[in-house]
Design a protein around this nucleic acid. Sequence first.
DNA 1: GTCTATACCGGGATAGAC
DNA 2: GTCTATCCCGGTATAGAC
Lengths: 202, 202
Amino acid sequence: MTKEGLQSDTTRDRVLSTSAGLFCQHGYAGVSMRKIAESCDMKAGSLYYHFSSKDQILTEVLNMGIEKVHAAVAAALRESSVDVSASDRFRHAIAGHLHALLEYSSFTSANVRIFRQVPPSVQHSTLEVRRRYEALWDGFLGDLKSQGQLRNDVDIRSFRLMLIGALNATLEWFDPELGDITELANRYADMLANGIFAERCT
Amino acid sequence: MTKEGLQSDTTRDRVLSTSAGLFCQHGYAGVSMRKIAESCDMKAGSLYYHFSSKDQILTEVLNMGIEKVHAAVAAALRESSVDVSASDRFRHAIAGHLHALLEYSSFTSANVRIFRQVPPSVQHSTLEVRRRYEALWDGFLGDLKSQGQLRNDVDIRSFRLMLIGALNATLEWFDPELGDITELANRYADMLANGIFAERCT
DNA sequence: GTCTATACCGGGATAGAC
DNA sequence: GTCTATCCCGGTATAGAC
């Protein structure tokens, strides 16, 4: 890799990270190439040396967000596969999601907040990455169920949708500077695994 | 109320309902007064007879969304206060939220999707309505807890945030044309009240 | 690799005719 | 109550100098 290649990469990365923050704060249409450039101490025209369009920047931002979370959950499951109880693996997977979600929040909350308002072509180019992440959870939850760890009447897809929805919503109120993410994960895992009622009921 | 007053109200309502759909689909900045007008078979200038600005339209849309959900949950709690088990009241409250959320989805998903990307002045003017809704849930959950219906180690604010996050996320995938909202509510209420694990664990 | 300059389009809001 | 016309600003993207 050449020197020019490396330098180009770091400028690219700075643009992507800055854009992510702007997209999640102002929405797709609320972010202009001029504003992205200004936040990077550049001029708008220069961005087109690195990216062919605003939509290309957006696509890369969205995919990076999902990939960060996917990698964190996959690692959590890999590192706790033997000699670990089902509830601990569940807890670790949730902690992986929340840590990546809240620590790369510019990239991840761009996904959560603006996915439905970006052009269909951009939505389409992130679908595969999204499906792979859903499949990771469905696989894990399916394993738990076939081991008899889950109640038989729990539908895995419904639960996965509820779980990811609940976790992603923490972006709207949790501040990693003020609270402990691991503790948050433990609370959520406990409520989701055991429920909140004193007595289980039908 | 005069005839003119009534006619003005229906035009206002048409504009609000159309705008809600556009805002939740395209985001705050992605919706122009010209597009709102076009979707209402009007011209942009005419909108300013009914509203003083784009932000005023947005503010009314956001508040209407929360108020619809608030009213539905309040009604569900009112109608099931006597002779109804705690888990049934819980179920009914969740059903109230989901029914209003998904049936007035233009107004409600404008809230869920774009609240963080609207101008701070608009955010501010919806805060009171949002707080009142949170207080409704905190009151109900606090009652359940003081009656001993909830586990002692469950934190009400954490659970309320998790609950509302999980419910609101259904906007992103549930289609009321294809599925039964009451059944969805029952599934969610069951998973949240009882947990998903076969055996409760620490 | 970044700049300036520019083409072309569309934004919110207002004024005043009808 | 709705229209047209207009003001002024800012959008994406390109061309070509440096």
